[in-house]
Simulated assay, not measured.
Amino acid sequence: MFTQLNPPIPLTVKDRGEGYAIGVIDYGQEHNLIWVTIITETGEIWCAPNPSVRGVVNWTMNRPRPAMESPH
Results as ranks from 00 to 15, higher is better:
29 Q>M: 12
6 N>A: 05
9 I>W: 11
49 P>T: 10
61 M>Y: 13
43 G>A: 09
36 V>N: 01
69 E>Y: 05
56 V>T: 13
58 N>F: 01
28 G>D: 09
53 V>P: 03
15 D>P: 00
2 F>R: 09
25 I>H: 11
25 I>N: 12
15 D>H: 00
40 T>H: 13
10 P>K: 09
72 H>L: 15
63 R>N: 03
64 P>L: 14
8 P>A: 04
19 G>Q: 06
2 F>C: 02
51 P>R: 01
11 L>M: 15
65 R>Y: 09
11 L>T: 05
46 W>S: 07
62 N>L: 15
18 E>Q: 07
48 A>N: 04
60 T>N: 15
58 N>D: 15
9 I>S: 09
28 G>C: 04
2 F>K: 09
55 G>V: 15
29 Q>D: 12
37 T>S: 01
18 E>F: 00
61 M>K: 14
44 E>R: 10
41 E>Q: 05
64 P>M: 10
3 T>I: 08
19 G>W: 06
71 P>I: 01
23 G>T: 11
12 T>K: 08
25 I>G: 10
21 A>R: 14
42 T>P: 06
56 V>M: 11
61 M>H: 13
57 V>C: 03
66 P>T: 08
2 F>H: 09
36 V>K: 03
38 I>A: 09
48 A>H: 02
57 V>D: 03
32 N>M: 04
72 H>Q: 13
61 M>D: 13
65 R>D: 12
5 L>W: 10
56 V>H: 02
11 L>G: 11
60 T>P: 06
9 I>G: 05
56 V>W: 01
24 V>N: 07
34 I>W: 06
33 L>A: 03
68 M>A: 07
35 W>F: 15
60 T>S: 15
67 A>H: 12
46 W>D: 06
33 L>N: 02
20 Y>K: 15
50 N>W: 08
47 C>R: 15
2 F>Y: 11
31 H>E: 13
46 W>A: 10
26 D>C: 05
21 A>H: 13
71 P>E: 08
27 Y>N: 14
25 I>W: 06
18 E>M: 00
37 T>A: 02
44 E>Q: 12
